[in-house]
Design a binder for these strands. Sequence first.
DNA 1: CCGTTGACCAGGC
DNA 2: GGCCTGGCCAACG
Length: 103
Amino acid sequence: MNQNNSFDRIYAIVQKIPTGKVMTYGQVARLANVATPRVVGFAMHSNPDSSLTPCHRVVFADGSLTPGYAFGGENVQREKLEKEGVKFLKNGKVSTNSFIQTF
DNA sequence: CCGTTGACCAGGC
DNA sequence: GGCCTGGCCAACG
């Protein structure tokens, strides 16, 4: 628990994201007490396992998916989220209603 | 130690 | 509503 490394804290938060819900990088960064959302991005790209750390549940603040998803690309990420019940908008973005509001 | 890079975000056009 | 720019800040070599 209380990891001193930023990466470990980020991983812990991402792992706590329930199925069918998504979080923005800024949200994760804030909960992980990280200075900037960029660190979250670094951690995700260094993410060792998609099953251990569901980085596909982490999206942009606009609801856009991750450009250059480390496990196949945006296309794969979108299918995974849809499979988990996440709603997508016509413009190809995640519905803001799928964002976690209370944690 | 310093410079570059980057899975961000907010603002402007 | 979509695309571009600037700024913040940590990790990497």
